[in-house]
């Protein structure tokens, strides 16, 4: 083994975590679909910073964890065992992504993330946790959880999830497609809930939708149109490019923990008088969910594509041609679920 071996670097990071830990009890447990994640934080400040978006799925005790993450900051790591030419797409480090280990550098935060598929342990290291950008708070540890999910039937999907306790839908689309606005319009209806607005966990074998992050983001400009969101916005994060809403803090009854996944919706901005939900094709759904999920996160693109295909073939595909009024959009979505339930 030489200094550039991923095993050695992983062990170096773990040792650094141990020496950086303040010794205060810092482990938290999170429900991850039908599994549990344990996260060890080296100090309480990082824990408080990173947990807001996971607060709705915290649990007190678990018998065993499917994955353990060590999260810490330390200035003592001053060199990396790789060179400049080793940085790849999405920060994946060439030579440090093997059948056992995954490694990526996170541009923006300067964080290094590793995952060991054998031990199911992940590491999130950053020099100073103040360097962690606001957007990481909206989907903490998404890269490590993506790596973990590769060994399961789960998929960390770049899509929103909405619906009711017994039936739900994905909402997928490009930036500007109306995905976030449509998702957040569900806050206006008592009978609709939101599992996530950006990433959701999905079981691709027996389609189930699981909430992972309770943070929703919306363009500041859209707040004028969606003024019902203004009281919900976290005003402590003003530096963000988007307004952030931690739904578990402000409207926790609207957060859907899990639901059977039946439908895929592709929103289309039409500026029509009325919102209409029409059937579309499986190919449209695959185009809307697969590339964006495959290329947002490092490695595993082929597996992700296969999981997206398996998922697509089990969902009924629809296009939502959006009207302009959020309340009307939500009413049409609500009526859709009511009608589908009556047809069962």
């Amino acid at each position: 083994m030489n200094a550039s071996h991923p095993t050695q670097f992983f062990n170096t990071l773990k040792a650094l975590y141990s020496s950086s830990s303040t010794g205060q009890s810092s482990a938290v447990h999170v429900r991850l679909a039908e599994n549990f994640l344990t996260i060890h934080f080296s100090r309480p400040e990082i824990k408080a910073y990173m947990l807001s978006s996971l607060s709705h799925i915290l649990v007190d005790n678990v018998h065993s964890s499917a994955i353990t993450i060590y999260c810490f900051d330390s200035p003592l790591l001053t060199t990396f065992p790789w060179q400049g030419q080793n940085y790849g797409v999405q920060g994946a480090i060439e030579g440090f992504n093997t059948t056992r280990f995954q490694t990526a550098y996170q541009h923006g935060s300067g964080a290094v993330m590793m995952y060991d598929h054998d031990t199911k342990e992940g590491i999130y290291w950053v020099k100073d946790f103040n360097d962690i950008p606001y957007w990481e708070r909206s989907f903490p540890f998404r890269t490590i959880l993506h790596w973990w999910s590769r060994d399961t039937t789960l998929l960390l999907l770049h899509a929103a999830g909405i619906g009711q306790k017994y039936s739900s839908a994905l909402l997928s689309g490009k930036s500007g497609s109306g995905k976030s606005s449509t998702t957040l319009s569900c806050l206006l209806r008592d009978d609709l809930q939101i599992a996530g607005d950006d990433y959701v966990l999905v079981d691709t074998e027996t389609p189930m939708l699981y909430s992972l992050y309770n943070c929703a983001k919306v363009e500041w400009d859209n707040l004028e149109r969606l003024d019902f969101l203004k009281p919900l916005v976290n005003t402590n994060i003003k530096e963000a490019e988007k307004a952030m809403i931690f739904m578990h803090d402000t409207c926790r009854q609207k957060v859907m923990q899990k639901s059977r996944l039946d439908y895929a919706f592709i929103p289309v901005v039409c500026n029509a008088n009325k919102t209409t939900i029409v059937e579309c094709t499986e190919a449209e759904v695959l185009k809307s969910i697969a590339p964006t999920t495959m290329f947002q996160l490092p490695s595993g693109q082929t597996e992700t594509f296969k999981k997206c295909i398996a998922l697509t073939k089990q969902l009924k595909p629809y296009r939502i041609e959006l009207g302009t009024e959020a309340s009307e959009i939500a009413a049409v979505i609500s009526e859709f679920f009511i009608q589908k339930r009556q047809m069962l």
Partner: peptide
């Protein structure tokens, strides 16, 4: 052809890497 994912695959444009591999 759809190329809206292209930007996601570009190497990070705001950082450069020094001799030790540190961006």
């Amino acid at each position: 052809k759809y190329d809206d994912m292209k930007d996601l695959l570009l190497l990070d444009p705001i950082h450069e890497v020094d001799q030790t591999g540190w961006p």
